[in-house]
Design a protein around this nucleic acid. Structure first.
Lengths: 345, 345
DNA sequence: TTGTAGGCGTTATCAG
DNA sequence: CTGATAACGCCTACAA
């Protein structure tokens, strides 16, 4: 065997550390895994050796030995441009990675478009990940349900089907807000301020967040005796918000306010309103949803329903880590929302 | 040993396939790895066995044996909200994942904010990934340079320092467009249409794409004998584009056009122009950069400099795969740009 | 062309 | 509390 000049220094192994510390591999392994069954002196010696050799355990070997991969999948059953376009997801991912940073787990990205590729499915179900985090799922993502039978899965947002079709006991793990209640409150805010002809720009009905918010705001409207006819739908994107606003304005020029199911759509709506010469909030008041950067970065700051996006991401990761540790975990984590008063309403 | 009711069916191993096919593990291994040294009959038998057992090789074992991880890192030295907010990155990532989908590699996400965490560095340099793809890097991401000494690294965009400070031979691998030339062309477009008082909304000077585009458009301006005083900077985001436009308008109310270094900033700029009652392109013509969805989704379609974002992502992945196969690879891949004429100029 | 045998770096099970 | 020793699933000389 010849040594090439470019030969890379090989990473030190447990064996090397053991030799350096004058103990056996087993002992080093115990130290690495934080076993309490080690005498203080030995512990110190081993830790020294680890430090001086700059040892870091080999993930492949570890995972071969104990059958865990230390990998968590981030599954995104969504068009990349839609996912990346929304600051809400940015916050979620930020929260997830922040939390995972304190663990041994790493995140792998699975862009699954509308339906995941053969390879993605094999990867996910082939024992290559220890768990899956699912964001932005639609009602047609049925394959995800089978994933749950193989590994822990935590959803961002109530999964579409589970609590209706399936028995509650097999229900999924998820973190969410009470979308209906939150949307109702956002709508009520407009009602309380004396708005009469309130429009709604709702999210996509094939997503729980879309459907629930629509339901909540419609409920608030009818409870207050307001008309519920001024409704359009978008897909949470800015463009769709603009389009929806135009449509609403064309059909109901008398509109005096609008509740919008996402801040991104709301910014689109606001720009259309201004184009059409309506002052905000004077002529038309606008309440958004999310309290994402989109809400406070425009030149008119949005009054909006705050949801703790980054914390929700962090919570998803925490739930996953607990599940992986085998700890008992509540299936649902519903986080608090509140209204943030700014300039648009 | 007791069998629990919830015992999961264990994944079939090489051994199992070998038994089913009546051959040795080695033979199965050869088939799996596409060796030509296998007789047709045996080949068929093994493939049958693989199919019927639904066998898929264990990544950990594989990587332990041959010292490759089959993992590629996607390194994002950037604020999550900035990264996720830009459809340009969405396209890049889309391209990368599309290409990787045909390989054995998976992508792991490393959000590295401004400076990567201790854990991220250890992870990256600790032999846990076979290569790294870097998008959106800034001039202060020095640690990335050391990464190159450990594994193949492919950058999206010319790395800030390399071709100036270092010897060209150690230069990095990257795919990019000729930002300066492209920006010059975009600016020239305005000049050719008789615009006289041309403004520039440039990108961040600590990013190559920002600096190069600024240089290109300023060059075009001065070559044509136009004033080069109407310049502001943004950070490629929509908000920053709006802010920059306001500033420009305040300082130079006589502006008759503006070249903007990203479509996202351009949409921000356009909305400000309309707010201020300037018609686009009548009063002020606008040329963007990217040809991202942002360009064609507003109600005024942007004339813009097209760069093949998704193809660039795909190309990055291809280069990486080649490098990992040990094939010779050109250090630079400069892709073509062209102007897309739409409504804003 | 095919099989045998050893090893990749850890963890887990046992003795001691 | 510590140390052998056998897996874990795959790859790869080497031998046949």
């Amino acid at each position: 065997m010849t040594i090439t000049p470019s030969a890379r220094r090989v990473a030190p192994t447990l064996e090397a550390v053991a030799a350096a510390a004058g103990v056996s591999r087993s002992t080093v392994s115990r130290v690495v895994n934080g076993s309490s069954q080690v005498s203080p002196e030995v512990l110190a010696a081993v830790q020294d050796a680890i430090r001086s050799l700059n040892y870091s355990p080999n993930r492949a070997a570890r995972s071969l030995a104990n059958n865990r991969t230390l990998v968590i999948a981030l599954v995104i059953p969504e068009e990349a441009s839609r996912f990346f376009g929304d600051p809400y997801f940015a916050a979620i991912v930020q929260g997830i990675t922040r939390e995972l940073d304190n663990s041994d787990y790493v995140l792998t990205l699975q862009l699954a478009q509308s339906r995941p590729s053969e390879k993605t499915i094999r990867y996910l179900t082939g024992g290559n990940v220890d768990g899956a985090l699912v964001v932005s799922h639609h009602s047609d993502n049925a394959f995800l349900e089978t994933l749950q039978e193989t590994m822990p899965v935590v959803y961002n947002g109530r999964p579409m089907r589970f609590d209706t079709v399936r028995a509650p006991t097999q229900s999924a793990y998820f973190v969410d807000v009470d979308n209906a209640a939150a949307a109702a409150r956002g709508t009520q805010y407009l009602i309380d301020r004396g708005r009469e002809r309130i429009g709604i720009i709702a999210g996509p009905p094939d997503m729980p967040a879309g459907a629930d918010r629509a339901e909540g705001s419609l409920r608030a409207l009818s409870t207050a005796g307001r008309s519920i006819e001024r409704v359009t739908y978008g897909d949470f994107s800015q463009v769709s918000g603009a389009r929806a606003m135009r449509e609403l304005l064309d059909r109901f020029p008398d509109l005096d306010s609008v509740f919008v199911a996402s801040d991104l759509m709301a910014t689109g709506a606001v720009s259309v309103l201004r184009e059409r010469g309506r002052s905000v909030p004077g002529d038309v008041a606008v309440v958004g949803f999310d309290d994402s950067p989109a809400a406070s970065s425009g030149d008119i700051q949005l009054t909006t329903v705050h949801q703790p996006s980054e914390a929700m991401g962090a919570k998803m990761a925490q739930m996953m880590l607990s599940l992986l540790r085998g700890e008992p975990v509540e299936h649902q984590c519903i986080m608090q929302t509140h209204i943030v008063e700014r300039d648009s309403a």
